[in-house]
């Protein structure tokens, strides 16, 4: 899991401040996500993880600072350039957020029909293939309301992958999934990264999953309204000098590993 990838910055966040009106959510955020990384955004409830994700995927403009993709400023670009950048993202929302008036196949087909010149047959084949990737082969003509929450989430992932994005964003992917499904989803995420070289950004507080798949992370703190640290989640757990971060990653339990780490 600590496999080294070419450390080429993909997403760079510099001096970013997010606020709703006068209410500052987070300020002075600085971190870099490299190509092929699985990057975890973590922190306690209500610290602004989801808001940070919104700033990254273009739903909310930060009140200061910049986000850039491959060195290109995202919020400073004009609408057309921003749209081009957006098409390189795929996002899996917390609830799946499938369009409820369309079947699963139509959900996946929509971005394909808008942004590619593929014919109907090709699109239908692609949809079936993407659905089979997430274990939903044969569910093409089901409506989101006819399948379970976990299946909705997987179908949402299939839609996020429709355009073979360079970056996949996940908002709490394992929330509401049973442990086995959550593990399968983690495996799927690793597989996607390894085979497609996709950069992956995940908002989560599922400890097991962040330790098993995370390469790098940023820890947001609700009290100080800024990031406390960045780094590999396992290393942070074992060696972080910041008690709050270790506490969070060890669920507030005694830090045996960290003591060992220090002794070494």
């Amino acid at each position: 899991m600590n496999e080294q990838h070419s450390a080429k910055p993909h997403i760079t966040v510099s001096n970013m401040t997010m606020a709703y009106g006068d209410f500052i959510i987070q300020q002075n955020l600085n971190f870099t996500v490299n190509h092929g990384d699985i990057f975890i955004i973590m922190g306690g409830s209500g610290c602004g993880k989801s808001t940070l994700l919104k700033c990254l995927i273009g739903l909310k403009e930060p009140s200061a600072g910049a986000v850039s993709f491959d060195g290109e400023d995202f919020w400073g670009s004009d609408d057309d350039d921003r749209l081009t950048m957006k098409r390189k993202f795929g996002t899996l929302f917390q609830s799946g957020a499938l369009w409820s008036s369309m079947t699963l196949a139509e959900n996946i087909a929509l971005p394909l029909s808008l942004y590619t010149t593929l014919g109907e047959k090709d699109i239908a084949e692609l949809c079936s293939y993407k659905l089979s990737l997430v274990g939903l082969a044969g569910f093409d003509d089901y409506y989101p309301s006819e399948i379970s929450g976990g299946m909705n989430k997987r179908a949402g992932l299939a839609r996020a992958m429709a355009l073979d994005p360079e970056i996949l964003f996940f908002d709490e992917p394992s929330a509401g999934l049973d442990p086995i499904s959550a593990k399968l989803l983690d495996d799927l995420i690793l597989e996607l990264r390894d085979s497609l070289k996709t950069t992956i950004v995940i908002v989560t507080h599922e400890l097991a999953s962040m330790f098993s798949i995370g390469d790098n992370s940023v820890f947001l703190d609700a009290a100080t309204h800024t990031q406390l640290t960045t780094g590999n989640p396992v290393e942070l757990r074992d060696t972080s000098p910041i008690p709050d971060v270790r506490n969070f990653l060890l669920r507030g339990e005694p830090n045996e590993l960290s003591d060992k780490g220090k002794a070494l």
Binding site: K54, A97, L98, P111
Partner: peptide, 12 residues
């Protein structure tokens, strides 16, 4: 249901 957000992030 975040469906509007899903549209916006796809540039729709």
């Amino acid at each position: 249901n975040e469906e509007i957000d899903a549209l916006t992030t796809l540039g729709i």
